[in-house]
Lab assay of single mutants.
Amino acid sequence: TEYKLVVVGAGGVGKSALTIQLIQNHFVDEYDPTIEDSYRKQVVIDGETCLLDILDTAGQEEYSAMRDQYMRTGEGFLCVFAINNTKSFEDIHQYREQIKRVKDSDDVPMVLVGNKCDLAARTVESRQAQDLARSYGIPYIETSAKTRQGVEDAFYTLVREIRQH
């Protein structure tokens, strides 16, 4: 089974770092803004072998026109913010609204991801993020692309959301 996953969120929150940590098991430290990259990885989730087709997208506003296209083809979405960047957390709402509009559905598989949880300088409390996820009816997972904490959990949870859909 193949799953088309799309990673969305503001610029600099760590979308590529999360994806590369999942696929290649290493942490990319330097920031190089993405336009669009796709990665494929075969994994076993709950005993089922599946192929993850992951689209890593641009957070930069100037590429926002490309969003409709990949939102149409994606089956599930990782909505990523950084726990030390309140603005990126506030941006999640717009991504969710755009996904709902493009998919013409209120019920699209999504996982809210709070990345950079290895950093002490948190400005978005776990509780705020949990409340937001609960209001959307989606899971919330904290990750660190640096330490790998929660990385597999985030992507695998999204696959489970798609399966249950």
Rank of each mutant, 00 (worst) to 15 (best):
T1N: 11
T1M: 07
T1S: 08
T1Y: 11
E2P: 05
E2H: 04
E2M: 05
E2A: 03
E2Y: 03
Y3A: 06
Y3V: 09
K4G: 08
L5W: 03
V6A: 03
V6P: 02
V6T: 04
V6G: 03
V7I: 13
V8N: 01
V8L: 10
V8F: 13
V8S: 02
G9P: 00
G9Y: 00
G9D: 03
G9A: 02
G9K: 00
A10Y: 05
G11V: 10
G11F: 06
G12E: 15
G12M: 11
V13H: 09
K15A: 00
K15Y: 00
K15Q: 01
K15H: 02
K15R: 00
S16D: 01
S16K: 00
S16Q: 01
A17E: 00
A17F: 01
L18C: 07
L18V: 11
T19M: 04
T19W: 01
T19N: 09
I20Q: 04
I20C: 05
I20E: 03
Q21P: 00
L22A: 15
Q24L: 06
Q24A: 14
N25F: 04
N25M: 08
N25R: 12
H26L: 15
H26G: 14
H26T: 06
F27K: 01
F27N: 01
V28Y: 10
V28R: 03
V28N: 06
V28H: 05
V28P: 06
D29N: 12
Y31Q: 02
Y31T: 02
Y31F: 04
D32T: 03
D32P: 00
D32Y: 01
P33V: 02
T34Q: 00
T34S: 01
T34L: 00
T34D: 00
I35A: 02
I35P: 00
E36M: 01
D37P: 00
D37R: 00
D37A: 00
S38H: 01
Y39H: 01
Y39T: 00
Y39R: 00
R40P: 00
R40F: 05
K41I: 12
Q42T: 08
Q42M: 08
Q42H: 09
V43T: 08
V43L: 12
V43Y: 15
V43P: 06
V44D: 11
V44P: 08
V44Q: 09
I45E: 04
D46I: 10
G47N: 08
E48G: 08
T49D: 05
C50I: 07
C50A: 07
C50P: 07
L51R: 04
L52G: 02
L52W: 07
L52E: 00
D53A: 03
D53K: 01
D53V: 01
I54A: 04
I54M: 11
L55E: 15
L55C: 08
L55D: 14
D56Q: 01
D56C: 00
T57Q: 03
T57I: 12
A58F: 02
A58Y: 02
A58M: 10
G59H: 05
G59S: 05
G59C: 03
Q60C: 15
Q60W: 15
E61S: 13
E62H: 15
E62G: 15
E62M: 15
Y63G: 11
Y63D: 09
Y63R: 14
S64E: 09
S64C: 14
A65R: 10
A65M: 14
A65C: 10
A65Y: 10
M66Y: 13
M66W: 14
D68A: 05
D68N: 09
Q69L: 07
Q69E: 13
Y70L: 15
M71I: 09
R72C: 08
R72F: 09
R72Q: 12
T73I: 08
G74W: 04
G74E: 04
E75P: 03
G76Y: 07
F77L: 04
F77W: 05
F77R: 02
F77K: 02
L78C: 05
L78W: 03
V80H: 02
V80T: 05
F81R: 01
F81D: 03
F81H: 02
A82P: 04
A82R: 08
A82G: 14
I83E: 11
I83M: 15
N84I: 05
N84Y: 06
N84A: 12
N84L: 06
N84T: 10
N85G: 10
N85L: 12
N85R: 06
N85W: 04
N85F: 03
T86K: 14
T86V: 12
T86N: 11
T86P: 14
K87Y: 05
K87C: 06
F89W: 13
F89H: 06
F89V: 08
E90C: 07
E90Y: 07
D91W: 14
I92M: 09
I92Y: 06
H93A: 14
H93P: 12
Q94E: 13
Y95N: 05
Y95H: 03
Y95W: 10
Y95P: 00
R96Y: 14
R96Q: 09
E97L: 08
E97R: 10
E97N: 12
E97P: 03
E97F: 03
Q98W: 15
Q98M: 15
Q98V: 14
Q98I: 15
Q98D: 13
I99P: 02
I99N: 02
K100R: 14
R101Y: 06
R101T: 07
R101G: 06
V102F: 13
V102M: 13
V102Q: 11
V102G: 06
K103D: 03
K103G: 05
D104N: 13
D104F: 08
S105Q: 12
S105R: 12
S105F: 10
D107H: 13
D107P: 10
D107S: 12
D107C: 13
V108K: 04
V108A: 07
P109S: 05
P109G: 03
M110W: 06
M110A: 02
V111M: 05
V111E: 00
V111I: 12
V111H: 02
V111G: 02
L112M: 07
V113R: 02
G114R: 03
G114P: 01
G114A: 10
N115L: 15
N115A: 15
N115C: 15
N115Y: 02
N115I: 03
N115P: 01
N115F: 00
C117E: 13
D118Y: 01
D118H: 01
D118R: 01
L119T: 15
L119N: 15
L119Y: 13
L119M: 14
L119F: 14
A120Y: 05
A120C: 05
A120P: 08
A121K: 11
A121L: 07
R122H: 12
R122F: 11
T123F: 07
T123G: 12
T123M: 07
V124T: 10
E125N: 10
E125W: 07
E125S: 12
E125K: 05
S126I: 11
S126D: 10
S126W: 06
R127H: 07
R127Y: 07
R127I: 09
R127Q: 11
Q128L: 10
A129I: 13
A129K: 05
Q130H: 08
Q130P: 05
Q130D: 06
D131C: 04
D131L: 09
D131K: 08
L132M: 11
L132H: 05
L132D: 04
A133S: 05
A133G: 04
A133K: 03
A133F: 05
A133P: 02
A133D: 02
R134C: 06
R134N: 11
S135G: 05
S135W: 10
S135C: 07
Y136T: 06
G137D: 09
G137Y: 03
I138Q: 02
I138T: 04
P139A: 08
P139C: 06
P139H: 07
Y140K: 00
Y140C: 06
Y140T: 01
Y140I: 07
I141L: 09
I141H: 06
I141G: 02
E142T: 04
E142K: 06
T143L: 15
S144M: 06
S144R: 05
A145V: 07
T147F: 09
T147P: 04
T147C: 12
R148I: 13
R148V: 13
R148E: 13
Q149H: 08
G150D: 14
G150R: 05
G150F: 06
G150Q: 13
V151A: 13
V151E: 04
V151N: 08
V151F: 15
E152I: 12
E152Y: 13
D153G: 05
A154E: 01
A154F: 03
A154H: 01
A154R: 01
A154C: 09
A154M: 14
F155I: 14
F155H: 01
F155T: 03
F155A: 04
Y156E: 15
T157N: 05
T157D: 06
L158K: 01
L158G: 01
L158E: 00
V159E: 03
V159H: 04
R160I: 03
R160P: 01
R160A: 11
R160M: 08
I162T: 06
I162W: 04
R163M: 11
R163P: 04
R163D: 10
R163Y: 05
R163S: 10
Q164G: 15
Q164M: 06
H165K: 14
